[in-house]
Design a protein around this nucleic acid. Sequence first.
DNA 1: TTGTAGGCGTTATCAC
DNA 2: GTGATAACGCCTACAA
Lengths: 335, 335
Amino acid sequence: MGATIRDVARLAGVSRGTVSRVLNDQPRVDPQTRVRVLQAIADLDFSPSMLARGLSIGRTHSVGVVVPFITRPSIVERLRGIEGALSTTPYDLIVFNVETRQRRDNVLRDLTRGERVDGIILVGLSPDDAMAASADRPGLPTVLIDSHHPRFSRVITNDVEGGRQAARHLVELGHRRIAFLGDTPPMAFTYPASRLRYRGVRMALRSAGLDLPDRYTIMRDPGRTRARELTRELLVGPMPPTAIICASDLQAIGAREAARDLGIAVPEQLSIIGYDDLDIAGYLGLTTIRQPLFESGVSGARLLLGQLSTGNRQPVREVLGIELIARSTTGPPPA
Amino acid sequence: MGATIRDVARLAGVSRGTVSRVLNDQPRVDPQTRVRVLQAIADLDFSPSMLARGLSIGRTHSVGVVVPFITRPSIVERLRGIEGALSTTPYDLIVFNVETRQRRDNVLRDLTRGERVDGIILVGLSPDDAMAASADRPGLPTVLIDSHHPRFSRVITNDVEGGRQAARHLVELGHRRIAFLGDTPPMAFTYPASRLRYRGVRMALRSAGLDLPDRYTIMRDPGRTRARELTRELLVGPMPPTAIICASDLQAIGAREAARDLGIAVPEQLSIIGYDDLDIAGYLGLTTIRQPLFESGVSGARLLLGQLSTGNRQPVREVLGIELIARSTTGPPPA
DNA sequence: TTGTAGGCGTTATCAC
DNA sequence: GTGATAACGCCTACAA
């Protein structure tokens, strides 16, 4: 199987150094010998060992992407963006799925030491200060997607603004009893998007002179099924809201499911707004806040590639736009 | 940043060899010195270079997973299974998304040569004979998920049987005009699941004395949107079917969408069956054929890990079960 | 039990 | 232009 550079050198009647030069397209090599070497390479079906090369030049040509809960469609979408941007480069994409703090710490430790990767992309994971410290000593180039830390380049959206837009949309439709269905961050160190969106909602309501009572504020476990249960409880209780803002499309789907269970018409009796604009939202006609998931992956990867090629590790903050997509789950409140 | 084994040795007052032995849990080392070494490792915050270790022992501790169209939910689900199985092992997961034949060839070439990975998992990609040949010379351990080749270990489901079950379900409900909406494999070398399911459908219909005319056989591009268009054409045409079997849940969703567009009630006027049982199918109440996507990833990874640890490369064929999940998009045909 | 030294497959720095 | 040769960081006989 493995022909080495040494075999090539022998067959071509040159030294290993020369073969290496040919391999790396270096100018100072005689056209004649270059041909001979290339021929030998072809004959032996040789291809260089990435491992050895990496050890020698100190780079691995791979980037580590750390994501929490690869389950979630929004995460997958971002991953796709990263993969797309990386696929045209010589960099491999190594995926790490972390679902516990323990595992996160292990992964990050391994990654920031042992020269396993040339750079890191953290998705939805906010580095703590200990980890941030490793960015000081010129450690691994690292970029954040959908999470924050002043020391790192990052691509984010304005979640507060997203919450605000959702709330304003409902207020303009005439709603006055608006609930928020979010989730607690699954792990301490994950990005608290839900909470920020909540904050935006509350701000918008307040400036419209409306209140967001505790009873209308539900933040528990994420996921469709749980959202369905929670919404049901809310809707069968006293003074149900006329609209619900959800922190994700999945939760919005669960909420709608609950409405259906109870025979409550959407949007005639209840308006629902999601967040993300997943593919499925279009099919379901879900009103939602679109955030550029795929594109965030592309941008993040580009940021990292930039650091990798220029060595410039100045933190950049890239803010991607969001947009309200009004479909058919929102309308005026019942008279 | 990078403390090396040499630094540890110096600090602990031992030789590099001893440090290495401690690192690899080799028995013949004095408990006392072991402690000293471990202390030094901790003090220096040292962790060994995977690159160097790999070069030395000839393994990379990573496996390459090649998938077509990481876009598709079913693929993602399988990927999750693989990741899950690998996460408890020292193996890293390197993802390659291939969407063109060109890219597939490049990836596979790189992968099977240059010692980049210790093993390969191909998802939904049927290796051609050229590639299969590389399995002869004891090349890289390779396993297939949702694709076939006698030379490789593989985990599959019986797609023909899946089609058959779907058709039988409808026949038993009383349908006689049944259509099939599948897709052509997106690339020549991808696994022709749709076609096999079609075959199963045809067989079941035939043995029920029913016909599957060309007009009821639609195989074009995959995807929800396209399925919606195609179904529409079918339904507005002469003698529309009373039931449609789709080769994927996504297509079934598109079909249902078309029915909705035309004001055709499901399942009263039209029955629809999907394939995969994605999460969303449950929400939509879609009748479908469930295949264990996540589990197929787990099994595939396990198969590969087995080969990696035992060296036994005897091809194994693991067939996972499928199951009809009857929900609310199928019912008796209109009277 | 521990130290020494050669080797894994490249690249890079010299001389020539 | 090209050929030696010393890294790169680790593992593993072989000695001691």
